[in-house]
Write a protein that binds this DNA or RNA. Sequence first.
DNA 1: TAGAATCGCCAC
DNA 2: AAACGTGGCGATTCTA
Length: 590
Amino acid sequence: MEIYFELVSDADAVRRACEELSLSEFLGFDTETTELSPFRGDLRLVQLSDGRKTKVFDMKPFRERGSLAENESLAPLRKLLAAESPRKIAHNAKFDARWVKHNLGIDVGGIVDTMLASQLIAAGDTDRRHSLADVSSYFLGVELDKTQQISDWSGELSRDQLEYAARDAVTMIALREKMTERLTHDGLVDVAELEYECVAPVAAMEQNGFFLDRTRWLNQLEGVKISQAKLSDELQDMLSAGVAQASLFGRAELNLDSHAQVADALRNIGVPVSVSTRASELLPLADEYPAVAKLLEYRGFAKSLSSFGENILEFIELKTGRIHSDFRQIGAPSGRFSCSNPNIQQIPHTEEYRRCFRAPDGRKLVVADYSQIELRILAEFSGDENFIRAFQSGADFHATAAAQVFNIKPEDVSAEQRTFAKRLNFGIVYGIGASRFASMTGLKQNDAENLMRRYFATYRKLDAWLRGASQKVLKERISRTASGRMVRHRFDENNREEIGNAQRYAKNIPIQGTSADILKRALRILHDEISQTSTKLVNIVHDEIIVETDETSAPEVAKILESSMLKAAEKYVKNVPVKVDVKISDEWTK
DNA sequence: TAGAATCGCCAC
DNA sequence: AAACGTGGCGATTCTA
């Protein structure tokens, strides 16, 4: 297929091209770059197409005259890209938005993202692929040749390369039309808009990065290494009695990281270990067997060294001195983000680690998180008056719940009763069963069952909602969040295990997913407040937002962050008070 | 021997 | 071990 396009490479052509395109409602949008990271290479091409007219803007001649962000000749392009209208349709728009932000200094406005749309339509089906080639094939029946994608975009460009670049932008127009039909049919228009609006904040966050203090991290690691070496030594001694080939030359070394070897050694010294050596299994044995306690202690340090060791320092970008993780906007079917390279959503909560992520000199972090947001969502969905009342009191939620469940005064709640209530409060969101609840609390199965009955008798509507969710899924085979996000459940109706799984997902997905909806809305509201300032979004962790700002504006930013998060929740949580805890800090600590 | 599978554990 | 949900990731062990 012949592709018609205009190559735009001087000031006059930029002005004319942007004028021609500016009245369209939608523009296909794509970029070609010499590397994958904006910190490594150059933005070479920017392609825009209204489906008939396609313009390929070559950045190279402009770059020769300095910064693209300040180049007057590119002002019309910057304006067109930044505007909310025309809307810019891109596949994985975060990628293009990052490059444009880094090179042209602007946030792309009015994003439509066909990759996110594809993920929403797939509704959690992990068999579906979401590359542009896959999506084009699935929705348009058009097979795209992507061989030019990894070609050299730095030098003289071939006709083939330019046509490839133009073609992807053209494709977006038909793709959006087709996918919008499907989004409409599936009731996904609102959630799609929510996702599209979230792209610019996420692109900005990745570009901003999070400052990690290398020296602090290394100092912290030194301590861990010493502890680990000591524990390793002691544990080897304790287990050596259980190693068959312990020799005359002292104890035999066993691999403490090998579950099989450790389980063997433990059995040989008389510890009744089952197949698994996981912590939850070993914990009850720790009191009786010192070697088990030692092993658990060792594991803690070993985990720290492997998962949170020096390797994370390799992710510090030399150009910025900061960590720029990859955030996947629809990382889970529930709509939650996932994070990788490195995953800074799983940094241990302890102060030693968290304090290494800090504000650079003269700056502050503002750390805000939703308090018990998932339980509040459950309260909203179920409309349970008692559960809602526990939030309205504003007091310690778990203690209040314990008072309700045990029918006693709040001041009479024992620590143990509070723990029971807390465990149940968290567990029910995941569809916990009595046996699991029993094992985690040490209660007998019978007592656990009775306590759960008592809990659900206290919160009858909550019980009804959960039962409703697990009934409904059998017929509908989907779950939805408050934004309309959909997750399809696949199960064989003759398979009890699969049915059980689906029923637990059905309880959890609407709650976890609505929490994700709220966070995404908050990101957009916040972005609109701060994008023109020096305040930077630096990390998010499911119900928490971390922002970096100038010391002098921190109190004001704290207010903006809190109000953005509250406003975001208002749309979906109307009958239950929502609480956001905000803290201004030098470090990522709460 | 490289990649897959498994186990285990960090976050929310 | 799991009838407690969502991820990413590292070390060991299995497998083609």
